Amino acid sequence: MTDPTSSAVLRGAVDLSSLRNRPQPPAAGSAGGAAGGAPAASVPTLIVDVTDATFGEILELSRTVPVVVDLWAEWCGPCKQLSPVLEKVVTELAGRLVLAKVDVDANPQLAQGFRAQSIPMVVALVAGQPVPLFTGAVPEAQVREVFGQLLQLAAQNGVTGTVDAGEPVAAAEESEPALPPLHAEAFDAIEAGDYARAAAAYEQALAENPGDEEARSGLGQVRLLERVQGLDLQAARAAAAAAPRDVPAQFAVADLDLAGGHVEDAFARLLQLFAELPTDERVAVRERLLELFGLVGDADPRVLQARRALANLMF
């Protein structure tokens, strides 16, 4: 696995420790086709119902292929709108993602572990680590964009396997064309820890196609990883505490907080800095906030709340 901060770029405060070591029943089926010959955990299809008792199996599978977890309930109208969209997109990805469906009413431990305060709630698992994606029913285009970002994040952590989608190999290859050359170059650079080269590849991709949202998202993540590389959290916090209006010092801690999944802390720090600075010194803070908003996702409730707070401070 690459630098562990990369797996936490979008990670939230989700505690799954109580479910990690739960004894598992015998496997109901098998999944194949994992890249590099790595064994995959047993799941019957690309879309599987998961319970409190079988969740450990899905955690193990996420070390081979990213798993999208759909937390839903029978009484939830928005869930019934979103679930078919998730199933459609996962199916089209032909084994690069698995969809795990969790009925929160029937599986209270999982609902508590994911802190599902409202549903539908969609979370991913990458190498056993939770990655919050979005809450509420969102458009299909946004689902595709978020899943594209998830696959990039998984690739950064070496989780690039697939499961058998039940389709002939040729059909799968037709539906999933090879990565564009600059994207492939960026992925190779990320795995080598060369974030500067990855950023350059994404920048060139955007220069050639300004509408390339996957390149834009990848560039934002790579820039964050490049900034936090080599930073010491305790030293950064001490420097920020000693100089509350030192913009670079506050930026460093905010970056580390976001990379570690402390999204609200990162936003709160920069909003407070914005409020305390003179008007002519606020531009850089606003730009950094907007960059971090883009990394977390415009539909995320934490981003929406922080955007409102920023607007109130500006006007």
Rank of each mutant, 00 (worst) to 15 (best):
P4M: 12
L10F: 04
L10S: 06
A13K: 07
V14T: 05
S18V: 13
R22L: 13
R22K: 15
R22Q: 14
A27S: 14
A31P: 04
P39L: 15
I47N: 06
D49C: 07
T54H: 13
E57V: 10
S62M: 12
S62K: 13
T64D: 05
V65M: 06
V67L: 09
W75H: 05
C76Y: 07
C76D: 02
C76I: 14
K80S: 05
L82C: 12
L82I: 15
V85W: 11
L86S: 07
L93M: 12
G95N: 08
Q117C: 00
M121T: 04
V122F: 02
A124S: 13
A127G: 10
G128Q: 09
P130N: 12
V138F: 05
G148W: 08
Q149F: 02
Q149V: 09
L151A: 05
V163I: 11
D164W: 00
G166H: 07
E167V: 08
P168Y: 11
E173I: 10
L179R: 09
P180M: 00
L182K: 03
A184Q: 11
E185V: 02
D188W: 00
A189R: 09
I190P: 00
I190T: 05
E191W: 01
R197A: 15
A207K: 11
G211C: 02
D212A: 13
S217H: 06
L219R: 07
V222I: 11
L225G: 02
V228L: 14
Q229A: 15
G230D: 14
L233R: 14
A236N: 02
R237S: 05
A240W: 01
A241C: 01
A241K: 09
R245H: 01
R245F: 00
P248W: 14
P248G: 14
D255H: 13
L258I: 08
A259H: 07
H262K: 12
H262R: 15
V263N: 01
V263Y: 01
F267Q: 01
L270E: 02
E276L: 08
L277H: 00
L277K: 03
P278M: 13
T279H: 10
T279L: 15
A284R: 04
E287V: 02
R288V: 03
E291L: 10
L295A: 03
A299W: 01
Q305Y: 00
A311R: 08
N312K: 08
F315M: 13
